[in-house]
Nucleic acid binder design. Sequence first.
DNA 1: CTTGACTCTTGACCTATGATAATAAATTAA
DNA 2: TTAATTTATTATCATAGGTCAAGAGTCAAG
Lengths: 192, 192
Amino acid sequence: MEAFAIYLKNRLALTDEQATQATSCLQTKRFKKGSILLSPGDTKSDSYFINKGLLRYYSIDEKGKEHIIQFAIEDWMLTDRDSFIFNEQSNFYIEAIEDTEVVIVKKDFFASIKNIVPEILELNILMLHNSIRFMQKRIDMLLSATAETRYLQFLKLYPNLSSRVPQWMIASYLGITPESLSRVRKDLVKRK
Amino acid sequence: MEAFAIYLKNRLALTDEQATQATSCLQTKRFKKGSILLSPGDTKSDSYFINKGLLRYYSIDEKGKEHIIQFAIEDWMLTDRDSFIFNEQSNFYIEAIEDTEVVIVKKDFFASIKNIVPEILELNILMLHNSIRFMQKRIDMLLSATAETRYLQFLKLYPNLSSRVPQWMIASYLGITPESLSRVRKDLVKRK
DNA sequence: CTTGACTCTTGACCTATGATAATAAATTAA
DNA sequence: TTAATTTATTATCATAGGTCAAGAGTCAAG
């Protein structure tokens, strides 16, 4: 059974049969490292469930600098809301940081699965609330914490990510330059 | 009819009767300016719909500095997720910036209204996605923009708020000091 | 009114982080 | 393998924004 089927099964108490049925018509797609899945201006009705690999969701500002809004790893769903939910043009990029295999979840999947498994709506609500509280904590951190604190916080929250992501991307996620992150790390080692 | 009933009616195509029925058992409560509705450590099952007035959702860091995560005005719902959704201890404060009248929406309201108006689940999902994309844009701004850009952005996004909120709170929302915001404003006037 | 508590502004100074650039190390491509 | 590109480090210098302190304006409470 597919990772996405297992994912749904675990969270929704489906039978194997239901899980397989629900996910049977979904497509899997592979992207090489560096592929761009979505760009500003696009309006796609795709959402991505990650079977294997790692995506980043980011913007590029007027000066050409990248700012990472979110990472997404195995068992996560990555969605651009402007595009997927509101049919507007996206403002962000999605890129594969590693060779990545995703399940393409189209809009109509949600429309049809709620007839088979109505509980999915409430699960969905719970997960959205969870995203929001994480984002609120991130905002709080960006408002209040120094580069060092942010970095330590990041390591604690995503202990496995730091080895899979180049350091300059971590810096970009933290809102600092790669040079600053390098200094922060040096200081941490020195003080230890 | 109450503001909250009208709010539901507009969004869910309810009859007057349904709207009144759904909201009949809800309590209204008034808070004087400066009242604290929620503190870190609390676990309340209350959510607030604002009839009149203005709330802020914020943290206080180790140095005693406040950081505003969110403002909420008339016709908005303010929820602390740790507390309301996940029954955990809150990390944040909620305070009334003006004398404020709220409708207290308890957890079981959502449990029971979905039987009367099942569409509320999907409306809820849409609104949560909308919150998320706004928060993503805010994160993007905090990662990329200068104090001045953030301030201009804030004015554009919440044109009516700036007159109701003391300037130091706007600074706190933007992640800068009141002194810096004062300077930013001076420069803007001078250059115009 | 007057007092006291906020709020905003301004100035002088300081610091964390950004910018730039050079180098080294690691990865990828050929 | 070698060359080419990307990534990480380090040093120097620059700057946006923070800190601290003083003063002026505003407002509410006695």
